[in-house]
């Protein structure tokens, strides 16, 4: 299966640069194939940038990085029209958002106005400047990072904008052995952007199309909906998962099944991806948080309670 080979090639290529973190690579690739975006929430220095860079390099995509600061303006992200005196007209200089893979670093450190500029582009795959609509290149994949929100001097992303990310991931620190490996590799490491691409962009687009063909049975669809409903009805939850969340989860499951070499989605895929796809879309009751509930425990609870469909729907 050529899809499977392509996927393995990407993952192996990423693994050459990143030590361990196979899970994160897989999830990032899942989001990439599903056409979603990823929010990485972690402290600095755990390899977020390297991850994105190597992913971009492995698919031969154009990689852009935007470092968000409090004084960053929307035009710094989208681009600006400058008057060209020689041609006597305004000339559009595209901003860093026009690229295949964007690393939006520390997104919660900039003002909501700039955040909105990025997030709009993420959702629509196009930007509008001076009345002109510019289609962004495909694939278009944003990997945003944010410091944990407890930190000072941040503008937390509003719920509506959090909803636009398919996954929220946490890198986590490497294990001891992995960290040693990181140190020893750094001596002779070629930069990730210089590694030869494993596949072409066309291959990736083909993968994206293939993912939409992965079968999601009615029972699995109802399982996804049941889980989403369960988050809305859960006693500790103030705001549950939106239908956009269920849709995102289904697409992610399709991509993940493709990565796993299957042409159908199983409830295992749903269970595995659900925490990544749902955790940033839920808001708990304040008192639930004080009484020791966290989003993780709520989701574990939901998964334990919702019945997995194991019998054909036409049989009892």
């Amino acid at each position: 299966m050529s899809h499977k080979e392509n996927i393995d090639a990407i993952l192996n290529s990423v693994e050459r640069t990143i030590v361990g973190k196979r899970e994160i690579s897989e999830l990032s690739l899942t989001a990439l194939i599903a056409g979603g975006h990823v929010l990485l929430e972690d402290v600095p220095g755990v390899g977020k940038t390297v991850m994105v860079k190597s992913l971009a390099a492995s698919i031969g995509a154009e990689f852009k990085r935007i470092q968000f600061t409090p004084d960053l303006l929307p035009s710094d992200v989208l681009g600006v029209s400058i008057y060209n005196p020689q041609q006597m007209e305004f000339e559009f200089r595209p901003g860093p958002i026009v690229g295949n893979i964007i690393l939006a670093d520390e997104i919660n450190r900039t003002s909501p106005k700039t955040q909105a500029a990025l997030l709009e582009g993420m959702e629509e795959s196009s930007i509008t400047i001076d009345g002109k609509t510019l289609q962004l290149p495909r694939p278009f994949f944003v990997m945003a990072t944010q410091n944990p929100i407890e930190y000072e001097g941040t503008y937390p992303l509003p719920e509506a904008q959090m909803d636009r990310f398919l996954f929220k991931l946490k890198m986590g620190y490497p294990t001891r052995d992995e960290e040693i490996e990181v140190l020893s590799r750094s001596e002779s490491q070629i930069p990730p952007e210089l590694t030869a691409p494993a596949i072409t962009l066309d291959d990736l687009l083909e993968l994206q199309v293939a993912a939409t063909d992965v079968v999601v049975d009615a029972t699995v669809k109802s399982y996804i909906v049941d889980c989403a409903t369960a988050t809305r009805l859960h006693a500790s939850v103030y705001l549950g998962v939106s239908p956009r969340g269920s849709l995102g989860l289904m697409k992610a499951c399709q991509a993940f099944a493709l990565i796993k070499g299957r042409n159908y989605v199983t409830p295992d895929d749903v269970q595995y991806l659900l925490p990544y796809a749902f955790s940033h879309r839920i808001i708990l009751h304040p008192d639930a948080e004080y009484s020791g509930h966290s989003i993780e425990t709520v989701l574990i609870d939901v998964l334990a309670k919702v019945r997995v469909p194991v019998i054909r729907t036409n049989s009892v």
Partner: peptide, 24 residues
């Protein structure tokens, strides 16, 4: 499918129960 479903029921009968939230 019938066979497998019978097997599931039988396993349940002999005490190996599947929690509602557990996948196959």
């Amino acid at each position: 499918a019938i066979q497998y479903e019978q097997l599931l029921k039988q396993l349940n009968r002999i005490g190996i129960r599947k929690p509602a939230g557990m996948t196959l």
